[in-house]
Design a protein around this nucleic acid. Structure first.
Lengths: 246, 246
DNA sequence: CGCCCTGTTGAGTTTTATCAATATTGGTGG
DNA sequence: CCACCAATATTGATAAAACTCAACAGGGCG
């Protein structure tokens, strides 16, 4: 199976064989096998290589002095961890795994070379960082305006679509290997409240959640209760005018 | 006085005379004078040129179906509006002025040319978009974890520092030409609660607010109550190794 | 078998929102 | 310069959403 990064970038534009091959190769050179709850990189450290999630889940997060934690975003296969890497000298947040994960480290010069060599690829990577920013803005909207039910269902819609984008949805089901406490830290809610809100969504038949498997019988219905509008994900091949011929 | 964009970028790296001149010129070619509460660009529109705030305040925002509004970020002089411009085909949020403002429109080819011509400038612009993303992450933390008092004082710290970065702070005072309702939309609080929280900060001697002038008698004190740590703003010249010689 | 981690439930509390009324302010025209 | 108006800020009272605390259940694993 292809690197999930390729699947992801091809939501923007079709890559050439060379570009795909280049990414494949980069994804296999320096792979870290990580356990759950390990840090990929920590706040205040200088970013070294570019980290790419190949399998498993991770998250960006930040602790406050007194131990409160906010999960800033979820990282799933195909996601790049530290686009800041090239310009900023130190991380302003940490990245940690949530599950066992395999993480590829792509050396800096390699990326620089690839971006110079393949302009289409450079555009695609730029797209990915802009989408990442768009997702962050949407989280701002959720945390600022949406109530617990909307917030949770909105997050589930987003996750479902993002997983589908890299081929990790089967039928109406996907993995959701995340504890309620972690959802709570992402949503700015207490675990108790997340628990009750999940039950509410289940009772309404909007989701199923058994083991670590999330099922969404009707995505439109879930999107409706979330007030979810997918266009911030920019998944509709906005770079199709750049498509490779092959 | 120099374009605020130059001041801003020089928090990252010192630009050459050519680069500065280029930016100055670009800032003066197509200038829009806008009134308060006008849209610079609207959600779902294709971004055309790159908009740069020369004076006045604006914000990114998004409405939900039922009229709730979240202000996603504040834009002050020196801020670029639509870094997405180059790659994304449509805006996923709107940008509107809060006060009368002058906005420069920089044509796309011009930017592309400048970034190819001046690598240092390209790095600086990249830095600015990464800082923008870092600020968005910090808003996520605020909205998710901080209570009303922390949230408000954190925002005021951020605004104060950003304004200082472009030379818009005099002594311990700066302009804050923003209505309480707008603060509320940014902080995810009701206007009533913003009002009471402001009073609390005033009563504690942490801020003064008269007319549209904010005074911060002791920035460290305000930062302490906010739990504010400035390093996410990356203002400490992280690109100094790129400094122009002149 | 027992333990720890995660999820679930109930009760009471806190924060923040809502509603409605009143005060203040800045701007405008006379 | 004053009177008036609309927009903004302030206040009080009540309600809702979400939190905290504490206890208990279930499941996986040594």
């Amino acid at each position: 199976m292809p690197s999930p990064l390729i699947r992801k970038l091809e939501q923007f534009t079709r890559l050439s064989r060379d570009e795909r091959q280049m990414l494949e190769q980069a994804s296999f050179e320096a792979v870290r096998q990580m356990g759950p709850r390990e840090d990929v990189i920590r706040e205040r450290e200088p970013p070294q290589a570019l980290n790419l999630i190949l399998s498993g889940w991770a998250c960006r997060y930040k602790y406050l002095e007194d131990g409160r934690r906010q999960i800033i975003s979820f990282l799933i296969p195909g996601d790049l961890c530290d686009n800041p890497a090239f310009v900023l000298r130190e991380m302003d947040h940490s990245i940690g795994t949530l599950t066992p994960a395999t993480v590829a480290q792509i050396a800096r010069p390699r990326i620089e070379w690839a971006m110079a060599q393949y302009p289409r690829l450079a555009q695609a990577l730029w797209w990915e960082s802009l989408v990442c920013a768009a997702v962050q803005r949407e989280w701002t909207v959720s945390l600022g305006q949406r109530d617990a039910t909307e917030r949770l269902s909105h997050l589930l819609c987003e996750i479902f679509l993002r997983l589908r984008g890299v081929g990790l949805v089967e039928g109406d089901a996907c993995e959701l290997p995340v504890k309620q406490a972690e959802l709570a830290d992402a949503l700015g809610l207490s675990t108790v409240h997340v628990n009750r809100t999940l039950q509410e969504l289940r009772a309404a038949g909007l989701i199923g959640l058994k083991g670590k498997i999330l099922t969404v019988p009707s995505l439109p219905a879930l999107m409706a209760t979330a007030g979810f509008s997918p266009h911030y994900l920019h998944m509709d091949r906005e770079g199709r005018h750049l498509d490779a011929a092959e």
